[in-house]
Design a protein around this nucleic acid. Structure first.
Lengths: 246, 246
DNA sequence: CGTCCCCTTGAATGAAGTCAATACGCGTGG
DNA sequence: CCACGCGTATTGACTTCATTCAAGGGGACG
């Protein structure tokens, strides 16, 4: 059932039937559904489980004293948040559903059992962790060095690529349920600026975006506008030498 | 010899003599010295070792097509960069010395041997990894939501706290070898803006900063100016229940 | 002694923010 | 069924914070 995760991990290495079985075993665990905007875990709470997102979009965010909110990560299906998070006593940020969301709650024990006898799974999950950090660095870069148009384009490129990885892109189109406010919170822009940039991207015939549907009309053009280089997602089967049937 | 790392890890958990021995064993490995500004590893290179910073400051950075550069992390003594980095085939960013730097190059094997029989060390290093990611998220927040004065203050607060953790603060003062350009590259500001903010912080009697020496005159005041909350550094012995002598 | 890097300062410019008004779709309840 | 409220999107006018441009000073080093 967590086959979106499997699908994603196979961008890194090929998994043996055993490995897949170990990952599937995780799916035995408690599944939980959240409504749009519902909190999944709050800053200050004690983390107890590893959340694996099966369906829907969610985000990591933090509120500032001055009322602003920064969205620091977006979770799409197949994403897993913080292996071993229970090492920490308190969450330093919150996680909330952006759309209705289904997650798998993996306990520490189940997780440890799953990876204990599958070194390839362990490595693949390490890869996923390293990619998550690389994404976070790229977000720092995005808000630090790019202007409004580049930021929004870059975020769109990244999410589009990540969705493609787990099979959620069809015909250059995908679901894209972020509001303009949320796009702003993720990129450090105001909703008004986001709106203006989106108008511009539409006028430039790079994207279509309405009713939570995104279609990329000119991927190379959009990537260029974003200075997007997918390197940091490390998707090119870099771990294939570790693969089951290599 | 990597006792700055040990010192840092003990903010999370208490280590047994065995654990310390395992960490000390790492120090047997190749030590390497870089000059200020020298590249330690370049974007595109294959990562071969885990670098543990013993002395001096370094940074992670990425160059953009448009000539700008974002510093995405700062390394101070006791910091370790990316456990298991060799899972990736290519570096997606570069690392360079900011000052003369001494690093320990830990091989994959040595690393695996060190943690194999010391679960506490493993957990402590995992904690360190989670903190590193939390710091990266905070940087995203910093450039995304704070104004110039807040950003610079925040970065100063963070580095001051991290240096304090490894015993590099004496009498509210520490080495602080970043140039104003580098501060700008880390915060998404121009050197001119950085200069103006620093003037302002000095006039407000919050800090002294000259000749690469920083003194904090009013820590609560600076933290308030920065909206700094050290939560995300997870320094309060959160893992003491796992400790050797708990 | 000259060069280079870093820091400093002032004045002009510009990108994004703020403020405000309007429009649109959707669900709820009268 | 329609009215209303609410959240989201759009647009225009004005403001502001940071950037850009430019010039000058000081210290380190060859």
């Amino acid at each position: 059932m967590p086959h979106k995760l499997i699908r994603k991990l196979e961008h890194f290495t090929r998994l043996a039937p055993d490995d897949r079985a170990a990952l599937d075993a995780l799916a035995q665990h408690r599944q939980r559904v959240y409504r749009a905007r519902e909190t999944i875990i709050n800053e200050g709470d004690k983390p107890e489980v590893i959340n694996l997102f099966l369906d829907g979009w969610a985000c990591r965010y933090k509120d500032l004293e001055n009322g602003k909110r920064q969205i620091m990560s977006i979770f799409v299906p197949g994403d897993i948040c913080d292996l071993n998070i229970f090492i920490l006593k308190y969450m330093d940020h919150s996680i909330a559903a952006l759309t209705p969301v289904t997650v798998l709650e993996i306990s520490r024990d189940a997780f440890e059992r799953a990876i204990a006898r599958c070194p390839r799974v362990m490595q693949a999950l390490w890869w996923d962790t390293l990619v998550t950090v690389a994404v976070q660095r790229e977000w720092t870069m995005n808000v630090g060095q790019r202007d409004a148009r580049e930021r929004i384009s870059h975020l769109i490129c990244e999410l589009y690529t990540r969705l493609d990885c787990v099979g959620l892109v069809t015909d250059s189109a995908c679901l894209f349920p972020l509001t303009q406010s949320e796009l702003g919170e993720a990129t450090g822009l105001t909703p008004v600026s986001v709106n203006r940039v989106l108008q511009d991207l539409r006028r430039s015939n790079l994207i279509q975006l309405h009713d939570s549907r995104l279609r990329i009309l000119d991927l190379p053009g959009l990537q260029q506008a974003a200075m997007f280089n997918p390197n940091y997602l490390h998707l090119d089967q870099e771990g294939s030498h570790l693969a089951a049937n290599a």
